[in-house]
Write a protein that binds this DNA or RNA. Structure first.
Lengths: 236, 236
DNA sequence: GTCTATAAACTGATAGAC
DNA sequence: GTCTATCAGTTTATAGAC
C-alpha cells in the first residue's frame, strides 16, 4: 500500500498543513461578505440554487438584502464565490498531496494511494477545516446537476488543471485498463462518491438505526478506497 | 452467468413485452394532458423543477396556462404525474424480470444476473419505449437531490416494494458481504449509475471525439454489470 | 458600507366567460 | 375543456438617502 516512512508526510498531515493555513486567512475577519457566504453555502447545499432566494440568504446571515449586490454583484457571482471559497483550499491541498505522493513513490503512485489521497483530502480536509464533507459533496453534485453553464465553465477554467493531473496519474497507475473503459469507470467513481456522500447523514443514521453501527471518518475512507479500486480494476 | 435456455425469456424479451404493452395504452390518444406531460418531462430533466415554470411548460406544449391546473391540480401533482408515467411501466417490467430470473434459476439469482436485469430494464426498456434513458436518469437524480419531500414520499409509497425486493435478492446473492458494507456499496452503485447515465450524451460525445469510439446500448450494459459487480464484491 | 424604498419582472393559481 | 384576465405573492436588482 506504500505506507510512507517516518520522514514523509502522510496525506492527513498535508491536509492539516494546507487547510489550517487557508482556514485562518479566510476566516480572520467575519464581515458581511463572509456572513453571506456562510449562509449561502449552507442554504444552497440544502435546497439548490433556484430554490434559495437572496432574501432567505440575507435574513439568515442577518444582513441587508442589498449587501449581496454590493459585495458580489449578482446571484450568479455569489454562487461562484461560494464555490471558490471551498474549492481553492481543497484543490491546493490535493495538488500538494499529489506532489508529495509522486515524490514519495519515485514518479508513479499506485491507484490505491492516489485514491487514498483524494478521499483523505476531500473528507479529512474538510472536517479538519471545521466544515461538513456532506455539504461539500452536495454542492459538487449541484454543480453537475443544476449547473447553469456559468458555474461549470468557472470550475473547469479555475480548477480543471489539478483534476486533469489526478486523472492522468490514476490512468498511469492502471495501464492494463483500456482508455474508454477507464473513462467510463472514472465517471462511475465520481458519481458514486458525490451521490453517497451527499446522503452521508441519512446513511449514517440508517446504519446506526438498523445495525447499531457508528460511522467514523476513517471507516468511510477505508470503505471507499477498496470499493473504488476494485471497480476501476474490474475485468470482464 | 446463467444464460437462459431457449425456452426461457431473456431480459430483453421481457422488456419488449412489458414496455410495448404499456407504451401503446399510454400513448394511444395525444390530448392536452399528454402534451403537458411530454413537455414537462423534457424540461424538468433539463433544468430541474424550480427552474421550470408552468408558463414554459405550457408554451412548449402549445396549450393554455390554465390547462395545468385543470388537468393536474398543481405543479406538485404534475411532477408526480411525470414520475408516475415513466416509473410505473419501468417498475412493472423490473418486477416481471425478477420473477422470471428467480423462476429460471430456481429461487436464487446470481448478482451478475440481477444486475443485468436491472440495467437491461432501465436502459433497454426505455429505449424500446422510444424514450431517452438519460432523461430517465436525470429525473431520478433530481428526485434524490431536489426532492421537495412530496416526491420522495410518493415514490417510496408507490414503488418501494419492488426495489426492496431487488435489494433483498441482491443481498442473498452476496452472502459473504457484511450488511453494513453491502448497504454502503448499494448507495455507491446507485450513485454511479444515476450520475453516469445522467451525463450519458456528454460521455458518448467525448468518447467519440477523443477515441473515435461509438457507444451502443449493449456496450454500456456490458460495461456497467462487471464494474458494479466487482465493486459490490470488493475485499479489503 | 449599510440602509430604505421601489422598480420591473416573474411565479403559481383561479375566477368566470365561452 | 379551453380560453382571457387577473390576483397575490415572490423574485432579482437598483437608486438614492444616510
Amino acid at each position: 500500500m506504500g505506507r510512507p516512512s517516518r520522514f514523509v508526510l502522510t496525506s492527513g498531515q498535508i491536509v492539516n498543513i494546507c487547510f489550517n493555513r487557508g482556514f485562518k486567512t479566510a476566516m480572520s475577519h467575519s464581515d458581511t461578505a463572509d456572513r453571506i457566504l456562510d449562509a449561502a453555502e449552507i442554504l444552497f447545499a440544502e435546497r439548490g440554487f433556484a430554490e434559495t432566494s437572496l432574501r432567505t440568504i440575507t435574513s439568515t446571515a442577518g444582513v441587508n438584502l442589498a449587501a449581496v449586490n454590493y459585495h458580489f454583484g449578482s446571484k450568479k457571482e455569489l454562487i461562484q464565490a461560494v464555490f471558490e471559497r471551498f474549492l481553492t483550499p481543497f484543490t491546493d491541498c490535493l495538488e500538494t498531496a499529489l506532489t508529495q505522493r509522486i515524490a514519495d513513490e519515485g514518479g508513479a503512485a499506485s491507484a490505491d494511494d492516489l485514491l487514498e489521497s483524494l478521499y483523505t483530502v476531500s473528507l479529512g480536509g474538510l472536517k479538519a477545516q471545521g466544515r461538513d464533507p456532506q455539504r461539500f459533496m452536495r454542492l459538487l453534485g449541484l454543480a453537475y446537476s443544476q449547473s447553469q453553464g456559468h458555474l461549470r465553465r468557472f470550475i473547469v477554467a479555475r480548477y480543471g488543471q489539478t483534476y486533469r493531473r489526478f486523472i492522468d496519474l490514476l490512468k498511469q497507475a492502471l495501464p492494463e485498463i483500456d482508455p474508454v473503459t477507464f473513462y467510463w469507470r472514472l465517471y462511475f467513481m465520481l458519481g458514486a462518491t458525490i451521490f453517497t456522500l451527499s446522503s452521508f447523514d441519512a446513511i449514517e443514521a440508517i446504519l446506526k438505526e438498523d445495525f447499531g453501527a457508528e460511522t467514523t471518518l476513517q471507516d468511510t475512507i477505508d470503505r471507499f478506497v477498496p470499493s473504488a479500486s476494485a471497480m476501476l480494476r474490474a475485468t470482464g
